[in-house]
Amino acid sequence: MSDIAIPAKANATRRPDESDLVKQRVRAAMWFLLPMLAALAVVAAWPLLRTIWFSMTDASLTHLADARFVWFNNYLHWTVLKSGKVIWSGVLVDPAWWNAVWNTLRFAVLSVAFETVFGVIVALVLNAEFPGRGIVRAAVLIPWAIPTIVSARMWGWMFNDQFGIINDMLMHLGLISTKIAWTASADTAFYAILIVDIWKTTPFMALLILAALQMIPRDIYEAAAIDGVHPVKTFFRVTLPLIRPALMVAVIFRLLDAMRIFDLVYVLTPNSAQTKTMSVISRENLIDFDKFAYGSAESTLLFLIIAVMTILYIWIGQVRFEGGTR
């Protein structure tokens, strides 16, 4: 570490005889970053700016080019009627939008919470030594490797109210007495989505956590064994604090991913208000309802929500991290 710290310090003080070296380094860094920045500008920055632009116009699919600039009317707009009554319109007062926001947040928090807990458990199992561990590690990854469209269809059949294997099994076990329309029923659609997402993404979590677990030296556990620390306590007092940084990264990755969930909902429960997420509803407006500008406004809000959450998460994580080192 000190090897790295020394040149970094030298950079900061910028002694004159080193400025050439510093300049050269900065230049080299620029050249390395340039292709990346160019690619990001084309595939991320430009579409984002276009979306924000469209969200402030009255564009529709057929009138993209001659769209008129309307400021924030798509977000919030009011009209005063002759009677003196004020009518509000725009995404920010749209109950369908807020329903989608709520669905998305609920989905993101619940799915990531379950995936984290299951991921840790799976990772702990995979970290133990047992015969055939390599095969099991590979097998666990299968749900993650299957394209979402495919697994969503697969689960769609399994959830089928008439022929689905899930109803069949539950009936045989005597847990339910009438068949449940998992994806169609308003009560269960959300949980169906949740279950499939957890099934699909737990392996990803498990793998990230497994990598962190394998960084923990084995002798620390031996020291704990000699200290007489109960294995459960060892997990909470030793393992968990040591994998926390990796866990934080995994959670934020998943949280961002869950916030923009689209494909699973689109395939599994396309028409359920209980599962409609921000991505689904903005696509609906963009394409199906030909409210391109309105959909763009929703997309922009989705972007802002994710950005704010990311910043918050990193900030809170840092505060807590410093607290831990004290």
Partner: peptide
């Protein structure tokens, strides 16, 4: 007998301190 019950203490080559 479990290690903690043997009345021993061990010093490891790699120190094995709890880093956190």
């Amino acid at each position: 007998l479990a290690p903690s019950k043997r009345g021993i203490a061990m010093v490891f080559q790699s120190y094995a301190l709890y880093p956190h």
